[in-house]
C-alpha cells in the first residue's frame, strides 16, 4: 500500500491541519517510507491473535456519583484565548 498526495490532503483535513504545498509533497514521501517499513508486520502470522490495546488487564472503575473538588470556573477559563462571561469564545459558527 502506498499513500498519494491526494490522500495526504484528505488525512490533513481529517486531522485539522493546513499543510503547505511543500509539506504535502514532503510528507507524502516520508509517510511512504515509514509505511513501507511497517509493512514488515505482514511477515508475522497474526491469525487468531487478539489485539492488545493496553498492557494492563483493566476493569472499568466506578465511583459513587458524588460531587468532588474540581477546577473552579475562573481557573478553567484562565488560559482561554478568548472568553465571554463564563464561556469560551470562538469565531461565529452560524451566520445571520
Amino acid at each position: 500500500m502506498s499513500i498519494s498526495t491526494d490522500q495526504v490532503e484528505k488525512i490533513a483535513a481529517l486531522a485539522n491541519l493546513n499543510l503547505s504545498e511543500d509539506e504535502k509533497s514532503k510528507f507524502t514521501v516520508q509517510l511512504n517510507t515509514i509505511l513501507e517499513y511497517v509493512e514488515k508486520l505482514n511477515e508475522l502470522d497474526t491469525e487468531g491473535v487478539s489485539p492488545l490495546s493496553h498492557p494492563l488487564d483493566l476493569k472499568n472503575v466506578f465511583r459513587k456519583d458524588e460531587v468532588q473538588p474540581s477546577l473552579p470556573v475562573e481557573k478553567a477559563l484562565e488560559n482561554a484565548p478568548a472568553r465571554s462571561k463564563n464561556y469560551f469564545k470562538v469565531p461565529r459558527v452560524i451566520r445571520k
Binding site: 508486520l41 497474526t46 491473535v49 487478539s50 489485539p51 492488545l52
Partner: peptide, 13 residues
Amino acid sequence: YYKKALQVRHLIK
C-alpha cells in the same frame, strides 16, 4: 495497520 500492530503487540508481550 492499527489492528495488525495491536496483534503484533500481543505477540511481543
